[in-house]
Simulated scan of single mutants.
Amino acid sequence: MACKSSGSAADPRAFFADLVRCETRLYNALNDRLRERHGIVTSQFELLRYLREHPGSRVADLAAEFAIGIGATSKGIDRLERHGWVARQPNPADRRSSLLTLTDDGARLSDAAERTFTERLTELLGGALSRPQTSAAAQVLSLLRTALEREGVGIPTG
């Protein structure tokens, strides 16, 4: 078992280990619930949710948001398209790319999965942290993410 951060002068290695292990456990728990109730995994839900909130996005937009490669993003969209949840439409501004939209089935799935996702995440966080602690953690992670994105840290090369 990895050592956990003590909360005092943080060892960056312990901070990293705690951050990654928390993310993995949350992701896996959400994955299990989404698969059980909706037949999708967390990565699929995240793509569907992004397209619900940003209709007309391109694969490159999703890749940038999730800091994953264009190829992996395109393959994920291909899977959603095969299920009939996403449609590609020609991009009038750039013939090399497509604009992505949810189908009616994709929108219904996204809405239902959003309720499941929020319910499960609230259970997981509420069982471990108080509201002020959750708020403080969210603020710290938002600051870290903003700094990393501003500096272009961790952008995939392919």
Rank of each mutant, 00 (worst) to 15 (best):
S5F: 02
E23R: 14
I68T: 02
T101Q: 12
E53A: 10
F66W: 03
T118L: 13
D32S: 06
I77K: 01
L148I: 01
A64I: 00
G127F: 04
P55T: 09
G84S: 10
E46V: 02
G84F: 08
A29K: 09
L51H: 08
A60S: 04
G76E: 01
S57M: 05
R82Y: 06
T157C: 01
R13A: 08
N28I: 10
G71E: 11
T134G: 12
R21L: 15
L144P: 00
G84K: 07
G76D: 05
G154Q: 04
F16Q: 13
T122R: 05
I40F: 08
L30I: 14
R145E: 09
A9N: 06
S142M: 08
T73M: 15
F117A: 10
V20T: 14
A10M: 14
T73I: 00
L143C: 00
L148R: 03
L109R: 13
A87D: 14
T134Y: 04
G56L: 09
E65T: 01
D61A: 13
I70F: 13
R25Q: 14
R88W: 11
S74A: 14
A2E: 13
P156H: 06
T157Q: 15
I77G: 01
R120G: 02
I70N: 08
E65S: 05
G154W: 03
K75H: 03
A112E: 14
P55H: 08
F16K: 11
E114T: 15
R120N: 08
S57Q: 07
L99F: 01
A63S: 09
T122N: 10
G84C: 11
L34T: 09
I40C: 12
V59N: 06
I68D: 00
A136V: 04
A29M: 05
K4R: 13
A72W: 06
N91T: 05
Y27W: 08
S130N: 06
A136W: 08
P92R: 11
L99G: 04
A128K: 11
A93D: 15
F117K: 11
F16R: 12
H83F: 08
S5A: 14
L48G: 08
I155S: 07
A67F: 01
R145V: 02
L30S: 05
G39K: 10
A87Q: 15
G152L: 04
L62M: 09
T42G: 01
S43K: 11
L125W: 03
D94H: 07
V153W: 05
G127C: 07
Q133G: 14
F15H: 04
R33K: 13
T73Y: 04
S135Q: 13
S97N: 09
